[in-house]
Nucleic acid binder design. Structure first.
Lengths: 235, 235
DNA sequence: CGCCCAGTTGAGAGTGATCAAAAATTGTGG
DNA sequence: CCACAATTTTTGATCACTCTCAACTGGGCG
């Protein structure tokens, strides 16, 4: 159930069988399923639990009055949607699905219990949180300084590396179940412009295995050549 | 010494005299002074302590290989530069001064001691951290979706409200010791473009007391009319 | 007094947005 | 399994916001 989260955390901390067992148990209760393009929690709602993505993609986003939408981050399997929401009265942003999603709702008590009794888990969750905020900083740089081509390239590299961390890549390929509108909302570009630039990334990617987008995604390491395909070929 | 931090935290949690005393003491040791435009800590360095800004402005920034620079956030008096840096081996970004800065270096031990013994301080620091990340999210929206005019307007409102929270405004005025290059680095705009847009904000601000920039800075409240002047008139 | 940095102004260039419409893909119900 | 509907992708043309370059002004400081 929680294999993606465990795999990710083990990049930071070695977990004992008991640690893993505890995580598995926390992820087993209160599993919920959402369809594609549904809100998991909306701006203004009061957060009741931490959500652990088990399967599917989601995103954090904010919408302006006139309809403009900014995707603030993506969630892939193994990701936790803010381990600290409890402190806040209400959400200042929404979390919505991209694909159908299966997630585990982890209550405040279960989480506190977990961190009280398993110090390695606590440490790993700290790491995970700090990496998440580092990615957030990188998005700020991405949106503020990089050209359209660089933005898309950087985002694709980030997502590939994150998926590799949880074991969801296959060689140099991975699923990317994201529409061009969503890529545009994440990169601050128009949906129409995404294609011309994304095509550019694909072309340059074929020529230059190292990619031209500088890799600052923190603890992920070097950005290898990324071949993205919409769907993995059926076996 | 720590009056700005205390004033800010009291917006979230009521602090007892002992709480305040403890904060004052933590801020009294290891005070350091920096000149303008100096690095407090650089990318790649290993963080040794948490920095509490006592006086002056600083910023968190990241620099690309070709010289492009993105300011990721501003620090004003009362701000803590990441209470959790200890978990990380090395900085993925730099923190530099804008004006001359006086800050208190708070060691890991002192901070842990503080949070162990004063639960209200712990709670307040959690709040402070969550508000900081909410501001970070808002910057993502700012850079991704808003026009130059809106970006500058929103940033000015954010800074004004943050300064008001720590008591550094005077009526509708506040100091803004930031050059246009720095405003540009923070908003993803060119320094040349900042003036035409900033002038626009000033004009519209004069006409519309409510300001045209939507206020999402979280717990700050409504964005009143902001009159910004470079220097406060001498008394 | 002169230098240097910050701010200002103007003109031209380019990246990316917008609008519109066709083509391709995916999903759904019979 | 096919046909139809809906969504997504692709292409083309035009527009405009913002950038870049360059020159000039003004104030602070050695």
């Amino acid at each position: 159930m929680a294999q993606h989260l465990i795999r990710k955390l083990e990049h930071f901390v070695r977990l004992s069988p008991e640690d893993k067992q505890a995580l598995e148990e926390a992820a087993r209760r209160n599993v919920r399923v959402f369809g594609a393009h549904q809100d998991i929690i909306s701006e203004g709602d009061s957060p009741e639990h931490v959500n652990l993505i088990l399967e599917g993609w989601a995103c954090r986003y904010k919408q302006l009055e006139d309809g403009r939408r900014q995707i603030i981050s993506f969630f892939v399997p193994g990701d936790l949607c803010d381990p600290h929401v409890f402190v806040l009265r209400e959400m200042d942003h929404s979390i919505g699905t991209i694909t159908p999603v299966r997630l585990a709702e982890i209550s405040r008590d279960v989480l506190l219990n977990l961190t009280d009794r398993y110090p390695r888990i606590t440490k790993a969750l700290w790491w995970e949180m700090l990496v998440t905020t580092a990615i957030q900083r990188e998005w700020t740089v991405n949106l503020g300084q990089r050209t359209a081509l660089e933005r898309i390239g950087h985002l694709l590299c980030e997502l590939f590396i994150r998926l590799r961390t949880v074991g969801l890549t296959e060689g140099d390929s991975c699923l990317l179940p994201v529409t061009q509108v969503e890529l545009g909302d994440a990169t601050g570009l128009s949906n129409v412009h995404v294609i011309s630039r994304a095509a550019g990334v694909a072309e340059q990617g074929a020529d230059r295995p190292e990619g031209q987008a500088p890799d600052h995604s923190g603890p992920g390491g070097a950005s290898a050549g990324v071949a993205v395909q919409r769907e993995l070929p059926a076996p």
